[in-house]
Design a protein around this nucleic acid. Sequence first.
DNA 1: TTTCAATATTAGCCATACCTAAATATTACT
DNA 2: AGTAATATTTAGGTATGGCTAATATTGAAA
Lengths: 241, 241
Amino acid sequence: MAKLLAKQKRMTDAVRTQAPASEAVDDYLKAIFQLSGHPERQVASNEIALHLSITPASVTNMLQKLAAQEPPLVIYKKHHGVKLAKAGKRRALEIIRHHRLIETFLHQVLDYPWDEVHQEAERLEHFISERFEERIAAKLGHPKFDPHGHAIPALDGSLPSQEPQAFAMLRPGQSANVSSVSDNDPEMLRYLAAQGIRPGVRLTLSEQLPFQGSYRVRVGTSSKLALLSHSLVQSIFVTIK
Amino acid sequence: MAKLLAKQKRMTDAVRTQAPASEAVDDYLKAIFQLSGHPERQVASNEIALHLSITPASVTNMLQKLAAQEPPLVIYKKHHGVKLAKAGKRRALEIIRHHRLIETFLHQVLDYPWDEVHQEAERLEHFISERFEERIAAKLGHPKFDPHGHAIPALDGSLPSQEPQAFAMLRPGQSANVSSVSDNDPEMLRYLAAQGIRPGVRLTLSEQLPFQGSYRVRVGTSSKLALLSHSLVQSIFVTIK
DNA sequence: TTTCAATATTAGCCATACCTAAATATTACT
DNA sequence: AGTAATATTTAGGTATGGCTAATATTGAAA
């Protein structure tokens, strides 16, 4: 006589539930978007784990959930990484749009200092409504760039394809315009601001000191020379023209 | 030989964890603040349950957690209701301040219609920083009232002691100024707006139709008469002068 | 082609945060 | 003192999102 327990079903914990729509999900989608770059490539779970400071196992688990959504948020091939599915990309771009609009708004309308906008935007980006988004965009005149020089995705998700060069690519004597700086390190932003380095400013690499130690840089047309460490330079992107 | 399992400890689920600081907590604190009125009185768990549309059991559970916090957020006497402890009151007033500042901001700076501000504020109130709060307050010139006429708590938590009369207290022929209207029902707010009824407007009760059916009301100095149902009238508070 | 290190996935579990229904207890009246 | 209304406890559920350890896969070097 077959026990009723036979089929037990002892559902494992993985892929146990279904469709989240949370901050965590937003963060995964953003991470995948940012890591997959242009042109788009598969992102490994390890990279995501590293980026979000969690274990790879947690990532695999979440990726399976995201792929199982209807509609799916990511395309996930076991052992071969993920990329964003249409809905996931839409959401990622929406969040990034929120983030950058909020940063711009905080800076321009609420007079936040440059280095404080990121933290606030990072929280609020998940919670504002479509209406809020639309209203601040209108208020700001539908800006194309945030205070750090990052392009703001349009409502339809389109982003001007940027070709940001790492500043470190420059050779001594070469000049370039700052297009953007990383937005997530307040201390660095304060330092750059103090040196007069911000999007739009022209930089000339004066000399690169030995052993990758640091870079001496002329800011704008002034005679001011800024000394930038290797790690600082990583945060600066330029267009050469 | 005493089994090691002896003490079993089979911890029940109640009061199992400790210190949350979430939206749910905010909502409990707000509910208690609102229900406890002026002068302050104990609030029964049943009332809270009703207000938040959850079961009394859930309320008891949460109240125990809130009382066990360090510092305690509520003073809770079994079977005798709760009131807010100092820290809880501080938080409740902070949230209410957030809510009302955000409503005012949405209305005045972002041109939200009257009836849409509540929903957005209800979400954002939990997530804005001190700095955000301070900046919108400054931008608005430190307003004392939100768009529905509710007083905005000051930074120190002080609230002008309001003595809002229920409109329904008026007798036919009496006049009074609208001090505030409830903010949580968009449809009602649109109706009131269409009738020209908003904080600051003077109303005269023209006649009260039988069987508590409805109220005929003169709005301002116009000859306009508005017909208000019993339930609508519940949402209007006035000062008689 | 085999082997092996790097990487990814599975299985099982843990914790937090909320909530519920049903059983039980307390209070405050009559 | 009995009882109806209220409140609390008990036991357990659901959902999210994390972790470790064991295991499996992949791809490149030998």
